[in-house]
């Protein structure tokens, strides 16, 4: 299916966004509105890792 074909690309994108979020957290260290909102972003990214990235790894795509 078409979704399967995009699985690896989605997993890569999730990994990149995660890295960017971590960079943002480091840049905004000590700034509460950044630190706390990045925690929320990271939680959502984690869900996409569980939903998509883990599947991509196991399916070997």
């Amino acid at each position: 299916m078409a979704e399967q074909a995009n699985l690896r690309e989605m997993a890569n994108l999730i990994a990149n966004i995660k890295k960017e979020a971590e960079k943002l957290k480091a840049l905004g260290s000590g700034i509460n509105c950044i630190e706390k909102n990045v925690i929320r972003m990271s939680a959502i990214l984690k869900m996409m890792e569980l939903d998509v990235s883990d599947a991509a790894d196991i399916l070997g795509v």
Partner: peptide, 21 residues
Amino acid sequence: STDIYWNPFLETMPVEKLREL
């Protein structure tokens, strides 16, 4: 149709892959 699933990757994953996961 994939629209009936929240997550088609996990919900329709082949059983042996699911056990691996």
